[in-house]
Design a protein around this nucleic acid. Structure first.
Lengths: 136, 136
DNA sequence: GTACAAGTTGAAGTCAACTTCAAGTCAAGG
DNA sequence: CCTTGACTTGAAGTTGACTTCAACTTGTAC
């Protein structure tokens, strides 16, 4: 596939594909003349990258988790650790979703008294510290 | 509380707190001399902000969901819509977590044949388009 | 075989979210 | 009184993730 084809299939702009290649996140399989050719597997890699980004991972982190061919890295401990991080993020997001849904439905004038909204705040607070720790 | 106290309790640097205040995400309750004083409720607001960020929301989006006092916005439709977005993100993250966990445990030389890893890729791909749409 | 749409490059620009800096203010301790 | 250290400001700098640009090359259609 050429770069435009990949862009069309994935929605990822050509400029981004070149950028990812420079960064080492994806690899082209040679050139036809001067133009890059991509193997179809690159579509999966791009999906994986977008998923990783949605999970709050940086491009560098994503690169460290998946080899340039899209295979998961051999560092099983890191993979499991990232899975744990994502699981804890999921917990917090579920609290957020519930809290938002409640706020959207609840006609109470103030949510300060509302146990459901309090639960959201509690869940938010508990994760906030953990996140700051990760960044250190 | 003064700014240092808030920073200590939350892990959010003072510079960030000033930045958030300028942006209108949090509000101080007056000054003692030249120094900001914060109500304890700001801790909840900060937790909420961090949670929103983890869910991939921009600071502007977060500001639009919560009034400067921390109360959820009155736009119930938007709140529900954000909850929907978060739910769909959660689905993709659960696939990611499962996939990573599998990759960490599975001794197969290549995950190309592995149905479990395929499922991760499928989930990743399906969400990738949706995300690109949101950004448009 | 020539026109041109679509590719190529490196460098520079943009945007969000902060951080750092220089210069100044103030409250409290010695 | 005067130093010290935590706060203040606006402006400029940083980082990650891209995008845009200018100048150039190429494959394909006519």
């Amino acid at each position: 596939m050429d770069i435009a084809e990949v862009a069309k299939h994935t929605g990822v702009p050509a400029s981004t594909l070149r950028y990812y290649e420079k960064k080492g996140l994806i690899a082209s399989v040679g050139r036809q003349g001067i133009r890059r050719r991509f193997a179809p597997g690159v579509l999966d890699q791009l999906a994986l990258i977008s998923l990783g980004q949605a999970a709050g991972l940086s491009l560098d982190e994503i690169r460290s988790m998946f080899l340039p061919n899209g295979q998961p890295s051999i560092d099983r401990q890191m993979l499991a650790a990232k899975a744990d991080e994502i699981d804890s993020l999921i917990k917090r997001l579920r609290a957020m979703s519930r809290g938002l849904r409640h706020a959207a439905a609840c006609p109470a004038p103030s949510h300060a008294e509302c146990p459901s909204f309090q639960k959201l705040l509690k869940a938010a607070a508990s994760g906030a510290i953990e996140k700051r720790w990760r960044n250190t």
